[in-house]
Simulated assay, not measured.
Amino acid sequence: MLFYFTAALVAAADQFVKALIRATMAVGESVPFWGSMALTHYENSGMAGSRFQGYARVFAVLAVVFIAIVLYYRRKGEIHGPLMDASMGFLTGGAAGNAIDRFWFGKVTDFLEFRPGGGILNLADIAINIGVVLFLIGGVLDYYRKKQNPLAAGDEQG
C-alpha cells in the first residue's frame, strides 16, 4: 500500500499545486518565496533544463512506459520492501504528475525557482529526485546486506 499511497499522493499534490499556479499567476510572473527561492510560473514543453522543447507528448509516452515497467516488476515481486516501495512511489507519482501535464497541456507547469541559476522545478520533479535518492540508498543497503550475509542474499549458490 505504501507504493500506491505515495504515488497517488505525489501525483495529486503535484496537480493541485500546478492548478493553483496556473489559476493565480501569469506565465513569467515571479514572487519571492523563501530565501533564495521564488514562485515563478514557467511552462516547459521539453524536459529538465528546458532541453528538447516541443517534445512534451513524447516524454509523456516515455513516462507511461516507465510506470508500466514499474508496475510489471512490482507484480513480479522484484520491487519489494518499504524503502523500494517508497522510492518507486515517488518516481511513479512524479512521472504521472508530469505526464498528465504533458498529455493535457502539451507542456509542464514549473514554479519553484532556485536562485541564482539553480533551475525551476515542480513537485513532481522534486518527488522524482527523492525517489532516485531512496533508490540509491536502497541499492547501497542491499549491497552491504548481501556482502555481510551472502547466503541469505538470494540462495543462488545453494
Rank of each mutant, 00 (worst) to 15 (best):
F16D: 05
M47H: 02
L112M: 09
K146E: 08
P32R: 08
F111W: 06
I79Y: 06
H80V: 09
K76N: 07
G118E: 06
V58Q: 07
T24A: 06
E43M: 09
Q157K: 10
A60H: 04
G46Y: 02
G154A: 14
I126V: 15
N98W: 00
A95K: 00
G119V: 03
H41Q: 08
T24G: 07
V70T: 08
E113C: 06
F66S: 08
A13W: 01
A86D: 05
A26E: 09
Y72I: 07
F52S: 14
F103Y: 12
F33W: 12
W34D: 04
G49E: 06
W104A: 12
L20T: 08
W34F: 14
G28T: 06
G49D: 04
S87Q: 06
L112A: 11
N129R: 03
T40P: 01
F16V: 13
Y55S: 04
A96H: 06
M1K: 05
F114N: 01
R145W: 12
G89N: 01
G158V: 07
G158H: 07
W104C: 12
I69V: 12
V58A: 13
G89W: 00
L134W: 10
V61P: 05
L151M: 07
A153P: 03
A11S: 13
A12P: 02
V64W: 13
N129G: 11
A68F: 12
G139R: 02
V64N: 15
G35L: 03
A127H: 00
A26D: 13
V17W: 11
S30M: 10
A7S: 14
A95R: 01
W104T: 15
D14S: 00
L134M: 11
V65L: 14
Y55N: 09
A99C: 09
V17K: 04
R145M: 06
T109G: 10
G119E: 05
G93H: 00
Q15T: 05
F5W: 08
V140R: 08
S45H: 03
N129A: 08
L71G: 05
A127D: 00
G131Q: 00
R75D: 14
P150C: 10
V64A: 15
L112P: 03
K146C: 05
I69Q: 10
G89Q: 01
R74H: 13
F52Y: 15
F66T: 11
Y144W: 15
L141S: 07
L134R: 05
H80E: 15
F111L: 02
S30Y: 02
N129V: 04
A96E: 03
Q148I: 02
W104L: 13
Y143C: 01
F135I: 04
F59W: 12
Y143K: 02
I69K: 07
A95S: 10
S30Q: 11
F103H: 03
A26Q: 14
I120S: 01
L9F: 15
A38C: 03
I130R: 02
P116R: 03
A12C: 10
G46F: 01
E156H: 08
V65N: 11
Q15V: 12
V58I: 12
Y4G: 11
K107P: 02
Q148S: 12
F66W: 09
D110N: 04
E43D: 06
G117D: 09
G97F: 00
R102H: 09
I67P: 03
P150Y: 09
N129M: 06
T24R: 13
L91G: 02
Y42Q: 05
